[in-house]
């Protein structure tokens, strides 16, 4: 478990646990340094960190797209084959395929029967509010709509865990707010487990039930923060004092995380103790 996890955490089996995971790039740069983290079922975990702290690398390791140089990634034994959905920074759609065919892709690759996949694609389209755009091509859609297609494609396999890599970073604020609201209720309804990477303090607090703050490269867990406001959250939460106070505290944690490498530098062997302890509300 993560150091300093608050006592309110129920004793549940995490979906995935990272134990001392390090990742060194072929160039020799250390991207992640002995990072430990566990994702519990049903939580919306946001990973907050500055650019280049290895957030994307972390998601790729969890997704199995890269191997850790050191440490272990353990999955909960139940559920058999692990199902995960991945949403990239860019919508990453096939431009030659219609919306419905883009969303169907994971099912097609898994050779799911046409009847079953038609039902699941319809369900995913309804979830992200893309009804009426099934036959459209990606280039006919706005950035926000493309991202909805990308999310629908990730949901269509009914994943145990949804990995999202700064999916809204390239969108305008109005579209982003709308997608954040929708994602918040989306994740709440069938109780999705989400691991959401972001470099925005506001986004991490707005969406997350737990915010994990990463240090600059090499990335490691610097602090964590529990956001107790119930999900799904809406515009009312965005202007509430609880939200603003949480943002202020997470900002402070991030600011001290940014200083972390400097305090660590003189004593790389005993760095563990100089970490700010996690802060729970």
């Amino acid at each position: 478990m993560t150091a300093g996890a608050p006592p309110v955490t129920p004793p549940v089996t995490p979906i995935v646990t990272l134990r001392g995971v390090s990742r060194t790039y072929p160039s020799g740069t250390l991207a992640l340094d002995r990072l430990s983290l566990s994702v519990e079922p049903g939580e919306f975990l946001t990973l907050l960190g500055p650019s280049g702290c290895g957030k994307t690398t972390l998601l790729r390791l969890i997704a199995g797209l890269a191997e850790p140089s050191d440490g272990r990634i353990e999955w909960s034994p139940d559920g058999g084959a692990r199902r995960l959905g991945f949403v990239f920074q860019e919508p990453t759609l096939m431009p030659w395929a219609r919306v419905e065919d883009n969303i169907r892709l994971p099912l097609m690759l898994a050779a799911v029967s046409p009847a079953e996949s038609a039902a699941r694609v319809g369900e995913a389209i309804a979830h992200v509010g893309l009804e009426g755009f099934e036959r459209a091509y990606p280039r006919e859609l706005s950035g926000g709509m493309k991202m909805r297609v990308s999310i629908a494609r990730a949901l269509v396999t009914r994943p145990q865990i949804l990995l999202m890599d700064e999916p809204f970073a390239a969108l305008d604020e109005i579209t982003r707010f709308k997608l954040e609201n929708d994602l918040s209720s989306l994740a709440h309804r069938p109780r999705l487990t989400v691991l959401f990477v972001t470099h925005s303090v506001f986004e991490s607090v707005y969406l997350g039930s737990r915010v994990v703050v990463l240090s600059p490269r090499p990335g490691r867990v610097a602090a964590e923060f529990r956001v107790d406001s119930p999900a799904p959250r809406g515009e009312a939460f965005r202007t509430s004092s609880a939200y603003l106070e949480a943002c202020r505290q997470v900002s402070a944690l991030l600011a001290s995380a940014m200083d972390l490498p400097l305090t660590l530098a003189p004593s790389p062997s005993g760095g563990e103790g100089t970490r700010p302890t996690s802060d729970a509300t």
Partner: peptide, 26 residues
């Protein structure tokens, strides 16, 4: 080919043939 799409196909367990037929060829 778009590197992210290549990753996506890998993530969903696409066979070499599927990745060729449905991604690289188009």
């Amino acid at each position: 080919t778009d590197k992210n799409l290549v990753d996506l196909f890998r993530l969903y367990g696409a066979t070499r043939w599927q990745a060729f037929r449905y991604l690289r060829l188009p």
